[in-house]
Design a binder for these strands. Structure first.
Length: 834
RNA sequence: GCGGGGGUGGCGAAAUGGUAGACGCGGGGGACUUAAAAUCCCCUCCGGGCAACCGGGUGCGGGUUCGAGUCCCGCCCCUCGCACCA
């Protein structure tokens, strides 16, 4: 039934002459491309390399999503355009097939992912090919292939060797009913998405990468890489650099009248509490302190009479899952019974614990300044803690009561701050820090929001973390020669209540000898995060055929860093940050000659359908296969590019496809009917060269929708009034269309007499002399209001332009006497001010 | 709350500070046809007018400029991220 050469070798029927039949044309050219190797890149010898990378998809069971296709088509057009401009273009594709998404789907349908994933991948490969993407499938990458994840594990080992991989206990979401670890995405409003039970925290030893050591470099390099501004901003915010100070508060003598002693049951209290603040200038207003409930000092400082209350609060906090802890809610907290000494005022201030202070930012402790911080104000108001004003605006009285936190620093100065009274805020931040530092209780510091990257997953479907635990030697990396640590094919891959990966159940697999001492060792049973798979895949593509090295030095030198990367902004912070980090580390270790992986990155927009987000429940998902069949891949591609600006996305409306389809019909007939006799029309040639320029410029800046519009405009001129175009008028248009609608372009190019691919025909020559207009329509305004247009020679001077304008009665009637002022923009506009 | 991107005809959208609405969809009229489809032509921002034309118009209110969709100030709304980050 299908005329597509998916696997059969039967030659497709030749396309008809008189009617554009996309099914026949596309089948024919897909076969040709395969036979001729048109989409294969000569990586070793090809000159002028250009690596056009797209974010590889997760191969879902549903098949290719129209959003994927939108992104891939945009990248494909860019790659094909670069090829026509004389580059050797490498456009590879791969599959990000590990991860919880695949695993959960496998659990749901009750089939093993090792059987399920290859089917999905095959379906994706079929659809991607059908879309006419210029993919060199010889370099396909699949993250679940042991030949790939062997090198993912190798990356881990490199970080381990460099001391950038470490183990510590960290909280995970735990569903007490399903008895399993949950990913953050599986926790909805504090409940397990599957069974609805309340999620808890559990603390497990997990592997982390020290990405926070790279925070400053990751931030700084953002200034020079050529990336979408929105993506760079997202990364800056994610890194979250804040300048401030760490301030040390000594513990005070217990001063409450409750009879508490000044020592805890663990001995004398002698630990200081260190806080991070961006507002050291407000220290005279610090009237209490707050520790995160998990803060290690809580046990030591809590007084006996407060112990039960504090413990109850901590238990409650621990029962909340990691996600729920982060949503806005009313302030809660309890007093520990302990006090600290404000190093500026010498006053004893109470120490509380509250979950609005987070253990994983700063030091897990704050000095609370309720007068000038909204959260502290809310908390102080609730628990009747003192609120002191230490910042005032121009004209404010120093003791005016505060009805709310005063946080507007603009032109404000310090009050109630002893020797600093009257000092402007900006200056005081520095001065107060210096003063405290001279007394040994503070130091200036830069703090980041960026956390170390937890790569452990207590799951099955991922690359085993290549570590062997030994009681004698501690954790040891698996020697590189022993990689890959193959993920065993076990029938029962369900997570269980042990809190560790299902791999732990397989003793024959996880009990091994220690690589250092040869004694009894145990394999790490967690697998690594999917984001590690995707943090280096672009390095693998040019070397995908090498099984002895992760990436070949010569190929890497030639093809990397990636020249152009196109993808969704949903990966602005995770994937793109991790890729930069891994690249930096490998660069530092001498494995790479660069430290930024993507020279240029552009975020594409997203497609909605008929004004609404596409979703399964709404049933408005676009299935590409239907559209390939009904309209052809060329029309579908071109419509996707036409429906809106590529970097903003747009609204997919079925009714809109007919417009581009009719354009391709007209192109077809224009070429088939083109006359060879006579010569091309001069006006048409001028428009042609203007079109060559515009389509080239627009394609280069990913403004595909306006490039398509320009081609349509030219087509309208070619066929105006059933005109028969000259062959020289249509030939270059076929080349312009080629990146957008490659199948029809190939067919028409062949019919125009070439036996080589249009993709190797180069970009049509642009001649500025032909494109130039000799006469221009000059807009004439009187007092800035448009009153008419005059056709004048392009190079006309102001005096002649005014004369030409005044010769028009329609214009002259608005001008009495001579103009007071004349604004003349040559070739565009004349404004007469009277 | 913070940050990004937006707000222009019936709809999707164009517009280096210089003729707002290119291009496409939809709609109206016409040619061809026995008829329809396909194709081609004309019209299609709003109001007034037979017309030439005139007036108004890019979320709202100000401002800069000979001239503002575009730049500046102050708001409103939509949307996508992040979100108790000290």
């Amino acid at each position: 039934m299908t005329r597509f050469p998916a696997s059969s070798d039967a030659p497709p029927p030749a396309p008809a002459d008189d009617i554009y039949d996309p099914t026949a044309v596309e089948a024919k050219w897909q076969t040709r491309w395969r036979e001729r190797g048109t989409n294969e890149t000569d990586l070793a010898a090809g000159p002028n390399p250009f690596f056009a990378l797209m974010m590889f998809p997760y191969p879902s069971a549903e098949g290719l999503h129209v959003g994927n296709l939108f992104a891939f088509t945009g990248n494909d057009i860019y790659g094909r355009f670069q090829r026509l401009q004389g580059h050797t273009v490498f456009e590879p594709m791969g599959f990000d097939a590990f991860g919880i998404h695949s695993e959960n789907y496998a659990l749901k349908v009750g089939e093993h992912p090792m059987r399920l994933i290859p089917r999905n991948v095959a379906n994706f490969r079929r659809q991607l090919t059908r879309a006419g993407l210029m993919i060199d499938w010889r370099y396909e990458v699949d993250t679940t292939d042991p030949d790939y994840y062997r090198w993912t594990q190798w990356v881990f080992v490199q970080l381990f060797k460099k001391g950038l991989a470490y183990r510590k206990k960290a909280a995970v979401n735990w569903c007490p009913a399903d008895k399993t670890v949950l990913a953050n995405e599986q926790v909805i409003a504090g409940q397990c998405e599957r069974c609805g039970s309340k999620v808890e925290q559990r603390f497990l030893a997990q592997w982390f990468f020290r990405i926070s050591d790279y925070a400053e470099r990751l931030l700084k390099n953002l200034d020079y890489i050529d990336w979408s501004e929105s993506t760079r901003t997202a990364q800056r915010n994610w890194i979250g650099r804040s300048e401030g100070a760490e301030i040390r508060f000594e513990l005070g003598i217990q001063s409450s009248g409750s009879g508490a002693t000044s020592t805890s049951e663990f001995g004398p209290i002698n630990s200081d509490i260190v806080v991070f603040t961006t507002r050291p200038d407000t220290i005279f207003g610090a009237t209490y302190m707050v520790l995160a409930p998990e803060h290690p000092l809580v046990d030591r400082i809590t007084t006996a009479d407060r112990r039960d209350t504090v413990q109850a609060y901590r238990d409650d906090a621990a029962r909340q899952d990691i996600v729920a802890r982060k949503v806005n809610k009313d302030k809660t907290g309890v007093f520990t019974g302990a006090h600290a000494i404000n190093p500026a005022t010498g006053a004893e201030i109470p120490i509380w614990i509250a979950d609005y202070v987070l253990m994983d930012y700063g030091t897990g402790a704050i000095m609370a300044v309720p007068g000038h911080d909204e959260r502290d104000f809310e908390f102080a108001s609730l628990f009747h803690l003192p609120i002191v004003r230490v910042i005032a605006a121009e004209g404010d009285h120093a003791d005016t009561a505060l009805a709310a936190a005063f946080v507007d620093d603009e032109g404000a100065h310090l009050v109630n701050s002893q020797q600093f009274d009257g000092t402007p805020v900006a200056e005081a931040k520095r001065a107060v820090t210096e003063w405290l530092a001279s007394r040994g209780t503070a130091r200036p510091i830069v703090n980041y929001r960026l956390h170390d990257w937890c790569i452990s997953r207590q799951r099955y479907w991922g690359p085993p973390i290549p570590v062997i635990h030994c009681d004698q030697c501690g954790p040891q990396a698996v020697p590189e020669k022993d990689l890959p640590v193959v993920l065993p094919d076990i029938p029962d891959f369900r997570p269980d209540d042990t809190g560790v990966s299902p791999l732990a159940r397989l003793e024959t697999w996880h009990i091994v000898a220690c690589p250092k001492c040869g004694g009894a060792g145990r394999r790490e049973t967690d697998v690594s995060d999917t984001f590690l798979d995707s943090a280096w895949y672009f390095l693998r593509y040019p070397s995908a055929n090498r099984d002895d090295v992760p990436f070949d030095a010569t190929m890497t030198k030639k093809w990397l860093p990636v020249h152009s990367y196109i993808g969704g902004n949903e990966h602005a912070v995770l994937h793109l940050m991790y890729s930069r980090f891994i690249t930096m580390v490998l660069g530092d270790m001498g494995h790479l000659h660069f430290e930024e992986p993507f020279t240029k990155f552009r975020a594409h927009g997203h497609i909605i359908r008929e004004g609404a987000k596409m979703s399964k429940t709404k049933g408005n998902i676009v299935n590409p296969d239907q559209y390939f069949e009904q309209w052809g891949a060329d029309s579908f591609r071109m419509y996707l590019m036409f429906l809106g600006p590529f970097q903003e996305g747009g609204d997919f409306r079925d009714a809109g496809i007919s417009g581009v389809r009719s354009f391709l019909n007209r192109l077809w007939l224009g070429v088939i009917d083109a006359r060879h006799d006579g010569s091309p029309d001069a006006d048409v040639l001028r428009k042609l060269h203007q079109t060559i320029r515009k389509v080239g410029e627009d394609t280069a800046r990913l403004s595909y929708n306006t490039a398509v519009a320009a081609m349509m405009e030219y087509m309208n001129m070619l066929r105006k009034g059933d005109r028969t175009p000259h062959v020289d008028e249509v030939r270059p248009l076929v080349q312009l269309v080629a990146p957008y609608a490659p199948h029809i372009a190939e067919e028409l190019w062949e019919r125009l007499g070439s036996d080589r691919s249009v993709m190797d025909s180069g970009w049509p020559a642009f001649d500025a002399a032909i494109a130039r207009e000799d006469f221009v329509q000059l807009a004439v305004q009187v007092n800035g209001k448009l009153r008419g247009t005059v056709s004048v020679p392009r190079e006309i001077d102001q005096e002649a332009a005014v004369a030409a304008a005044m010769a028009e009665p329609q214009i002259a009637k608005f001008v009495t006497g001579s103009p007071r002022k004349v604004v003349f923009v040559p070739g565009r506009l004349l404004n007469l001010v009277v």
